[in-house]
Design a protein around this nucleic acid. Structure first.
Lengths: 113, 113
DNA sequence: TCCATATTTCGAGAATAATCGAAATGTGGA
DNA sequence: TCCACATTTCGATTATTCTCGAAATATGGA
């Protein structure tokens, strides 16, 4: 996966609503869920939902298919796997037995502004 | 990993400069890189760099340690792995032999506004 | 103690993203 | 053909994020 596409994927997932949508679809499996079902599950306004779905679609993380009047969405597992591969690429390079020491998130003092 | 932390991690990585920084650190291995080295490698202004590093630190993706006057940063592999685990959690649930059909990113017609 | 170096915080302006009502589009059925 | 339903696009407003100069803080050495 190219860096630009990885960035699209990460940006797509880096939003509470979109992460929720994506996870709903991941759990829904191959059958997926209709846009209307997603609207009902999340309580989002139609336009807002479409906006978020478009972002996920452009990133290749969600695919859809029209079934009559309904549009059925599903998660694109391969794209997600490609993203994971991109992130771990060259991981621990140069440090053979890399310690991979755990570290905790900082308590956030003045939040990046 | 909790959803809120995953969101922090994804948001942290969902920015070209921060993704570049993180990947530089991933490749640098356990030894990591000094803030000054990162500044030189990326050409970012000091304040901008600190801002981005803070975001990565708060997400727990980057840790650092002072060595004299220099602050040495390194990628936190375990946090990254936890993020990957979060994303694949419940993957393909409900669809035993899930097709995982590939799908291409949409060509982006009117870009989500 | 005083200075040079490394990095962070502050503060403000510019750019980008999120939200939603209303109007437009596409589809199936009467 | 005409209508109801599902979803998307348009347009404008509000909120958030990015960026960077300048000032502040921390450290080691003279």
């Amino acid at each position: 996966m190219e860096s630009a596409l990885a960035l699209d994927c990460l940006s797509a997932l880096a939003h509470a609503h979109r992460l929720t949508l994506f996870r709903l679809l991941v759990r829904a499996g191959d059958e997926g869920m209709a846009v209307g079902e997603l609207a009902e599950a999340t309580g989002m306004a139609g336009a807002t939902l479409t906006n978020h779905l478009n972002i996920l679609r452009r990133a290749g993380l969600v695919a859809d298919e029209r079934r009559g009047r309904v549009i059925q969405c599903r998660a694109c597992y391969p794209q997600m796997n490609a993203l994971l591969g991109f992130l771990t690429e060259n991981c621990c390079a140069g440090s053979p037995g890399a310690a991979c020491t755990p570290c905790k998130p900082k308590p956030a003092r003045s939040t990046a502004r």
